[in-house]
Simulated scan of single mutants.
Amino acid sequence: MKWQEEGYGSRQQAADTLSDLARRLAEGSLTVEGQEVRVPEDGLEYKIKYSDDQAEGELSFKVTWTQ
């Protein structure tokens, strides 16, 4: 199953959302659409990706692990 959450707002609102996400990830209390996200303590791979062209830009942060 896949869940996602979206938002729209200012750069500061996006930063606040990322700060809250980081806090909940560190605490082990992360949820997405009400679903608990069980992230292991270690063995994580994470990437920050940035792309930009004349039409739009994208910045993403991705965390993956194997079960």
Rank of each mutant, 00 (worst) to 15 (best):
L44K: 03
V63C: 02
A22I: 14
V37E: 05
S51R: 14
L30I: 08
V63A: 07
Q54M: 00
V39N: 06
E45D: 05
G9E: 10
V63Y: 01
A22T: 15
R24S: 08
K2D: 12
S10C: 09
T31S: 07
L30R: 05
E6T: 10
Y8K: 05
E36N: 12
Q67S: 14
W65F: 01
A15D: 09
Q13V: 01
Q4N: 10
E56A: 10
G57S: 14
D53L: 05
G34H: 10
A15P: 10
E5A: 05
M1W: 00
E58K: 15
P40I: 05
E5C: 04
E6H: 10
D20Q: 15
E33T: 09
T64S: 04
A26Y: 05
E5Q: 11
E45N: 13
R11A: 11
K2T: 12
E5P: 02
D53H: 09
E56L: 08
A14F: 15
W3N: 13
Y50R: 13
D42P: 02
R23L: 09
T17V: 13
Y50H: 13
Y50E: 13
S19R: 15
D53R: 07
K2G: 06
K2L: 11
L18V: 04
V63Q: 01
Y50D: 13
K62M: 13
D16W: 01
S29M: 11
E58F: 07
D52F: 13
E58Y: 08
V32F: 02
K49Q: 13
